[in-house]
C-alpha cells in the first residue's frame, strides 16, 4: 500500500471537507472488503482515505413519511439481511444472502457493495479496466451485452439489479457544501469509454449517503443468481425482477434488470414488454428470458453466459411470481 492520510469524519459536512476534488486523490472507506485489497495491490493509490463508518447518519435505516425506506450507505449487509421490516424486498435480501460469507456480509456495506470496482481479472492484474485482453483472451466471465465499446467487464454489484428493479434512488451529497440530490439507481452506472473514467456518474467530491427504496406497494420481487458452488464467488449471471400483478395474476408493471452480464446493470425493456398484460407461467418467463438476451453479443469464451442470463431472468420472474424455478 502507498502511504496515505486517514480521515474519520463524524458528520456528512465533515466528509465533504476532507474529500478532494481531484480524481483518485481520495478514496472513501466503508467496510474495506474491496478497497483495502485494491490498495494492497497498488491498483488504487489515494493520498487520503476517508473512513465514513463513524458518521451516524450513514448508519441508520429509516422509514420516511411516504413509506419509503432509507438505508444508510454505511449500514452493513448483515443488518439489512436480518431486518424484518425489509422482508417485503426479497430481491434485496436474496442478493445479499447470495454473498455466502458471514464475514463479507458483516463487514461489507450497502454503499460499498453498490460502488465496488469491477471484479474483471484483467483490471485486477493491472492490465486496466478497458484491457484489450478481454476481447479475445480469458473472457469467460465478461460481458455479453453492452460490450461493443472498449469496456468488456461486468458490473459486479449484486444488489444493484434489485435496487433498479425496485426503482430505488441514491441520495448523493456534494460536491458543494450544501448540495444534495437524488439519483435513480438506474441512472447511476455508466459504461466508461476511456481510461480513467469511473463506472458511475459520481464526481470525486460526491458521496452516496443513502439508498431510498420506494414503498413496495403491492409489488412482488426476486433476485436469481446463477452461482457455481456455495462460496462467495460472484454469480455467473443474475437477474432481478419486480412486478405488479392484479388479482387475476396478470402482470401490470414489470422491471427486469440483469446483473453480471454488462458493464452496468442491464435493464431489459424487451423482457418487460413480454410480461405486461399476461399471467406468469414458465413459458412466458422463458420467452421473457429469451427476449432479454436477444441482443447479446458474446465474446470468444462466454457464449454460455447467454443461456445463463436467459435462465436467470426466467427464474427471477418465476420466483417473483411465487413459482418454483425447477432448478437449483
Amino acid at each position: 500500500m502507498k502511504a496515505f492520510e486517514y480521515a474519520a469524519p463524524r458528520t456528512e459536512a465533515e466528509i465533504l471537507q476532507v474529500l478532494s476534488a481531484e480524481p483518485g486523490a481520495t478514496e472513501v472507506l466503508a467496510g474495506g472488503t474491496d478497497l483495502v485489497g485494491l490498495m494492497k495491490k497498488m491498483l488504487v493509490t489515494p493520498d487520503r482515505v476517508v473512513n465514513i463508518m463513524d458518521v451516524p447518519s450513514l448508519k441508520t435505516i429509516d422509514e420516511l413519511p411516504d413509506g419509503s425506506v432509507s438505508i444508510g450507505a454505511a449500514v452493513t449487509l448483515d443488518l439489512i439481511l436480518d431486518h424484518p421490516y425489509l422482508d417485503v424486498y426479497p430481491a434485496v435480501k436474496q442478493a445479499i444472502r447470495g454473498i455466502n460469507s458471514m464475514q463479507l456480509q458483516c463487514q461489507g456495506t450497502l454503499g460499498g457493495e453498490v460502488c465496488q470496482r469491477p471484479r474483471c481479472w484483467f483490471y485486477r492484474n493491472g492490465l486496466g479496466l478497458l484491457s484489450e485482453s478481454a476481447s479475445e483472451g480469458a473472457n469467460q466471465y465478461h460481458a455479453i451485452l453492452g460490450n461493443t465499446g472498449p469496456a468488456k467487464f461486468v458490473n459486479s454489484s449484486r444488489i444493484a439489479p434489485a435496487l433498479i428493479a425496485l426503482e430505488a434512488q441514491l441520495r448523493v451529497i456534494g460536491p458543494g457544501e450544501d448540495e444534495e440530490r437524488l439519483i435513480p439507481v438506474s441512472e447511476f452506472f455508466r459504461t466508461p469509454r476511456h481510461d480513467g473514467q469511473r463506472e458511475h456518474v459520481l464526481q470525486p467530491q460526491q458521496l452516496v449517503t443513502h439508498v431510498i427504496l420506494p414503498p413496495i406497494a403491492g409489488r412482488t420481487c426476486a433476485t436469481y443468481e446463477v452461482r457455481d458452488g456455495e462460496g462467495p464467488d460472484y454469480p455467473l449471471a443474475a437477474a432481478a425482477v419486480a412486478m405488479r400483478l392484479d388479482g387475476y395474476g396478470i402482470v401490470h408493471a414489470a422491471k427486469v434488470v440483469l446483473g453480471q452480464v454488462a458493464p452496468t446493470p442491464w435493464n431489459s425493456p424487451e423482457a418487460e414488454r413480454l410480461l405486461i398484460g399476461h399471467p406468469v407461467d414458465p413459458r412466458r418467463a422463458e420467452q421473457a428470458g429469451l427476449a432479454a438476451v436477444r441482443m447479446a453479443s458474446p465474446l470468444s469464451e462466454n457464449t454460455y453466459k447467454v443461456q445463463l442470463a436467459k435462465v436467470a431472468v426466467k427464474r427471477a420472474i418465476l420466483l417473483a411470481a411465487g413459482h418454483e424455478t425447477g432448478g437449483f
Partner: peptide, 20 residues
C-alpha cells in the same frame, strides 16, 4: 422519519475532522 435501525451514536464535537 422512523428509525428502524441505528447502528451507533458517536458524539460529535465542534472541531473539524481529524486527518492523521
Amino acid at each position: 422519519a422512523t428509525a428502524l435501525h441505528t447502528q451507533t451514536a458517536a458524539a460529535v464535537d465542534d472541531q473539524g475532522p481529524k486527518v492523521v
